[in-house]
């Protein structure tokens, strides 16, 4: 337990010392919020069913952070620690392998939560955002979304040979998904054909779930999202247990 705490604290410091990862997790989504908030404000529009741009952007950008930490942050860190022999050195100590991996997941989760917290605070104090959901409910949806994407991140980290490949693969998966799933742009702006494509993207279900819970929709309305994210989580864990390599 002491090792896990120490390791989590250490990994958190390392995360914040890596400027690119920290920027895209903590600063970039906030900058997007201020950019589009200053262009469109947060007045209710019929396009967003009576909600404002900022209202729908907070859950969407949260989905963006989840995808970034899951597909890039976690994957690159694990692949580079394996490539450099960091994992190998840790494996020669009595520390439990589970603790080594858990520390990474915990740190990614904390950073993703911080990213969301910044968005919520900015929304609340700058744009008087409308929140009509249940805080516990959105927290649960957030945890499910994070874990399901981290599970995919683990599969990627197990498959890629180097940190460089992890970066390329992560980007190839992440960027189209950000634009097509409704995370980066509101899905209302997307043409019908793209909306069809988006049903094949896992991130779409995170966006749908979080946006729905944010405005107070019930879990029953989002059973498809929950089923898909739950499946990703289970498959991700099972596959990683089989595929994960320490060196």
């Amino acid at each position: 337990m002491k090792s896990l705490l120490k390791m989590t604290w250490m990994e958190a410091k390392l995360f914040l010392r890596e400027p690119v990862g920290a920027f895209f997790t903590l600063a970039f989504p906030l900058m997007m919020l201020f950019l589009f908030g200053s262009i469109y404000g947060n007045s209710p529009t019929s396009m967003f069913n009576g909600y404002g741009t900022v209202d729908i952007s907070i859950p969407a950008y949260t989905a963006m952070i989840i995808a970034t930490t899951g597909l890039m942050g976690l994957t690159i860190t694990l692949a580079s620690n394996r490539e450099n022999g960091v994992l190998r050195r840790l494996r020669t100590t009595p520390v439990s392998p589970l603790a080594i991996l858990a520390a990474q997941v915990i740190v990614m989760f904390i950073m993703t939560s911080l990213g969301m917290l910044f968005l919520v605070l900015a929304g609340k104090f700058v744009y008087h955002v409308h929140f009509e959901g249940n805080a516990l409910s959105i927290a649960a949806g957030f945890v499910l979304s994070c874990l399901s994407f981290y599970a995919i991140g683990f599969i990627l980290a197990s498959l890629v040979p180097t940190a460089r490949t992890a970066q390329v693969v992560g980007m190839v998966l992440l960027y189209p998904m950000l634009f097509l799933s409704g995370a980066g742009f509101p899905r209302e702006l997307l043409p019908e054909t793209i909306k069809k494509i988006s049903t094949f993207l896992p991130l779409t279900y995170v966006v749908n779930l979080l946006r729905g819970l944010w405005i107070g929709e019930s879990w029953e309305q989002h059973l498809i999202s929950v089923a898909i994210l739950g499946t990703m989580l289970v498959v991700g864990i099972l596959a990683s247990v089989k595929l994960f390599r320490w060196e």
């Binding site: 090792s3 120490k6 250490m10 390392l14 010392r17 022999g85 190998r88 020669t92 100590t93 009595p94």
Partner: peptide, 29 residues
């Protein structure tokens, strides 16, 4: 693992980990 000390031919620490942090972290194991 608890009773041996190991220096590997190929191993590393994370680039941004400081000397004292490495010692402090490994002590906890």
């Amino acid at each position: 693992r608890s009773n041996t000390g190991i220096q590997l031919q190929q191993s590393n620490l994370p680039d941004r980990m400081k000397v004292w942090e490495a010692l402090d972290l490994y002590s906890s194991f």
